[in-house]
Design a protein around this nucleic acid. Structure first.
Ligand code: FES
Ligand code: FES
Lengths: 165, 165
DNA sequence: TACAAATAGGATAATTTTATCCGAATAAAC
DNA sequence: GTTTATTCGGATAAAATTATCCTATTTGTA
């Protein structure tokens, strides 16, 4: 029996396998929600928490927290009460950058943090992978700072990209 | 009093601010430990858990788990008992890539995962940031697959790079 | 053989992230 | 004004990650 059981023990990893690519789940939901809100605000439509959670396939209550966070950071607007919901002023859609959303939810460690977790990333006291990481981090930073919600919202509207599955 | 307290409530974020750049803490420790082991194995020196944890400034018992994981993945060797410790066969140091370590600890989501957490990253069913992420992920992948422990270990030995602080 | 110095590994605790629940506040419609 | 639909926010729970403790096992040395 001991022998049989040992065969079943194939998952020898410490954790159950980091499933996160770059951002926290909260941040992923925040990004997707923002894109969905933008795509609707583009048509002058306000969307409710329920619609958002359904569209981006996220847990409703958790998504609510994240949206509140974005509202507090003045990235999106909320309207309480019947017929309320979330929206982004049409003329602001194209000026909201992904970096603002990431920053609000995950903070700025993605822009400034050391790839190996040293307390600070410093040219004069680099970690072993500093040079290799610097470029990638910079590219990521540029991308986030130069991608705005309008471009992404249009792709969703046209069916060129998707928010779930 | 209400008013004074409200001023103290400056941290309006959901979480206490994601401090992770790319990898889990476990993975960061694993990478740093591997580099340190390599730099010593280069001189034919075996290092103990205690020395490693001290050098990379990590919690000893947790580091032990991670090292066990790397041993099981045959990335490093361990020797039990007095004068035991961890080592990497000299001739293997230059062939061990960062990607092997990351893969053993964090899995392959960093290479294959969708930036917005869609179930799969798929050209035919892309998320809104698919095109933007693809390049960065590829660059990261190339870097991890092309960087070996020897290069990094030598920088540590020469004092050109650092493992803590 | 006994002892000392290590790693291995199971159990458990602490912390953080993710998720849920519920009542309060708000605003539109009737 | 009452009802209804909705966000807000506090409290709490669940799950995952990070961390600690303790015992067993292994191996070199006296
Ligand atoms: S010091 Fe580690 S990335 Fe710069
Ligand atoms: S589908 Fe999201 S990165 Fe490819």
């Amino acid at each position: 029996m001991r022998i049989i059981l040992s065969y079943l023990k194939f998952n020898v990893s410490l954790n159950q396998q980091n499933n996160q690519f770059m951002f926290s789940k909260a941040c992923e939901y925040g990004l997707k929600a923002s894109i969905f809100i933008a795509s609707n605000s583009y048509d002058g439509e306000r969307v409710s928490l329920k619609e958002i959670a359904k569209e981006i396939n996220s847990p409703e209550a958790f998504t609510a927290k994240i949206l509140q966070d974005l509202v507090r950071h003045k990235i999106i607007n909320s309207v309480k009460g019947a017929y309320g919901g979330f929206e982004i002023p049409k003329n602001e859609i194209s000026s909201i950058k992904l970096s603002q959303i990431v920053n609000a939810i995950d903070g700025d460690s993605i822009y400034r943090g050391c790839g190996l977790g040293l307390h600070v990333c410093d040219e004069n006291h680099p970690c072993p992978v500093h040079d290799q990481f610097k470029d990638i981090r910079m590219q990521l930073k540029d991308m986030l700072q130069n991608t705005n919600l309008e471009q992404l919202a249009l792709d969703i509207k046209s069916g060129a990209s998707f928010l779930k599955l």
